[in-house]
């Protein structure tokens, strides 16, 4: 394989991964905007998406599309329950407390998943069978295309939701200024619940498309952390930034892993995270004020 071909391969892998990171980053952003909470259980939504899809499709033998929709709905429900049971009671608490409760949630979710689905990877079949495509000598897995298509679709739908629907606009208003939003009659509580549901749903979608590659109780952690890196790179609290941040992180990570060393793949992502936080906590792509003295 020539160097150019290798490069193309890294790019393809990076874009695919980046889409997933972008979805998770969007999940972080949506919750952060409505509640100022960073949800450390975001990665577990991804894991739930995959294991739920497995359950509906493989155990209950429903067809793939129906299973996918049901899986996303269940994850949405989990997100809503999380808000009601864990976040709401601590609304007035310190940031440390809020961080810790979402960490607690993430561990609890992992533990429950281990209990129900065991310690091994669960798989669903690839969404479509057949040989991978080839562009120049780079290989594109069919599932990669599914990932890309569904990810972009989810992002597009989210965009339309925010731009075209009353509820979406209300959520934007609520994120911008809670007081003003409640004065014009928007129910803040509903918006917060909705943001958890929406964020969980995005995680569920990401998990669903990843399911053919296998997922177990603790796989989600990694996606959660990478998604957060992407959100920070894109400027926490900015939807477009989150998506672009996801793609950038995915590509940089793949290139770095390919050209430098694959064992330092995670170190590259986390170094980017720490550097961005130190140098420009408001994000390097799009700005939204970071908390800094």
């Amino acid at each position: 394989m020539t160097f150019t071909n290798q490069l193309i391969q890294y790019l393809i892998n990076g874009i695919t991964k980046g889409g997933i990171y972008g979805l998770v980053a969007l999940g972080f952003t949506i919750i952060y905007k409505s509640t100022d909470v960073i949800n450390f259980a975001q990665g577990e939504f991804v894991m739930f998406g995959a294991v739920m899809l497995y359950t509906f499709h493989h155990v209950l033998h429903l067809n793939l599309l129906l299973s996918f929709i049901l899986a996303v709905l269940v994850v949405t429900l989990i997100g809503i329950l999380m808000e009601v049971l864990m976040i709401r009671p601590l609304e007035e608490s310190s940031v440390i407390t809020q961080i810790i409760v979402t960490i607690g949630a993430s561990i609890f979710f992992r533990g429950s998943a281990m209990l129900i689905w065991g310690r091994n990877d669960v798989f669903v079949p690839f969404f479509s069978s057949g040989k991978p495509y080839r562009i120049f000598h780079a290989i594109i897995d069919r599932q990669y295309l599914w990932i890309l298509v569904i990810t972009l679709l989810a992002m597009g739908v989210l965009h339309l939701f925010y731009e075209k629907t009353i509820t979406g606009k209300a959520m934007t208003a609520c994120a911008a200024n809670k007081k003003a939003a409640s004065l014009v009659g928007i129910n803040i509580r509903t918006m917060v619940v909705l943001s958890f549901g929406l964020s969980a749903a995005l995680g569920g979608v990401a998990g669903g498309v990843l399911a053919p590659f296998g997922m177990k109780y603790d796989t989600g952690v990694n996606y959660g952390l990478k998604g957060f890196c992407a959100a920070i790179v894109g400027g926490l609290g900015n939807n477009v930034g989150a998506m672009v941040g996801g793609f950038v992180l995915g590509i940089v990570e793949e290139l770095g892993a390919g050209l430098i060393s694959s064992s330092y793949r995670n170190a590259i992502a986390y170094s980017i995270l720490v550097l961005v936080l130190i140098i420009r906590p408001q994000g390097i792509l799009f700005t939204k004020s970071g908390e800094r003295v």
């Binding site: 952060y32 909470v37 960073i38 940031v95 440390i96 961080i99 952390l225 957060f228 890196c229 920070i232 986390y270 170094s271 995270l273 720490v274 936080l277 130190i278 906590p281 970071g290 908390e291 800094r292 003295v293």
Partner: peptide, 14 residues
């Protein structure tokens, strides 16, 4: 210099 969630994430990244 970072606060709250940003500090949490930076230390986690480290």
């Amino acid at each position: 210099k970072l606060k709250g969630h940003y500090l949490a994430m930076a230390t986690l990244g480290l």
